[in-house]
Amino acid sequence: MNTQTSAAAVAVAGVAAAVPGLALENVTCTFRAAAGKGGYTAVKDVNLTVGAGEFVSVVGPTGCGKSTLLNVSAGLLEPSSGTVKVFGEPLVGMNRHAGYMFQAESLMPWRTALDNVIVGLEFRGVARNEAVARGQDWLQRVGLGSHGHRYPHQMSGGMRKRAALAQTLIMDPKIILMDEPFSALDIQTRQLMENELLDIWSADRKSVLFITHDLEEAISLSDRVIVLSAGPGTHPIGEFAIDLPRPRDVSEVRLTPEFVRLHDEIWHTMKEEVLKGYVQSQQK
């Protein structure tokens, strides 16, 4: 596995990121069973780092505890054992450096797009005028400039995701956690959103931990792809540096031979776990 090369790839502008933005060390999460003894160990002994400014994707079979890793990173869930470090500091409580884009709908239905985008600034106590100005700017950037007055139910799925993206990025988080954010979108909208995400990311490099079950999405976006085993007791089983040149266009990069080679290589590692995951989901 090429962890060494990936670390080099991370070194943006020639400065090696000595302190990773996010580091999970021996993280284990066991959920208490609803009834009776024992429990369910979703993730076990996970070591995972995201360098400063690095885009890391995590792929794995369905139901393997990918979201658990994000919840731990965001501080929403305390690991049963192990530590989370954010820029070298152990994480206590909520992760104030992280933005989180959820898989499910996360906009407040009773707020307009604009009011949803600025809600984080409101929590921070930013004056309404300034918040609105910044909110407008972000709506513009995600292509919703003239839709700020719409309520979530008046927007399409893609528009809601854009609003959610603006809502996360307006807070200027140093780490962005994304949980299959585009999985509910149709393929065309999805590729558009992926390209926009890459544009925004390359303008202002943040650490991104991107969870997906779609290997192609993972390869086309990331600097590094981490493959997880099937649950229970999920842990990383492979790590691949993606040295495709940037800037990338997600729909074009998929056609390059280098992409196909990486896809084959990673899929080979994943296949067995996906089958395991499938068998388990059948037995449940």
Partner: peptide, 12 residues
């Protein structure tokens, strides 16, 4: 929705 709550908490 627990997602709404989690989202608001993450946003601070």
């Amino acid at each position: 929705s627990p997602v709404l709550l989690a989202n608001a908490r993450v946003l601070g």
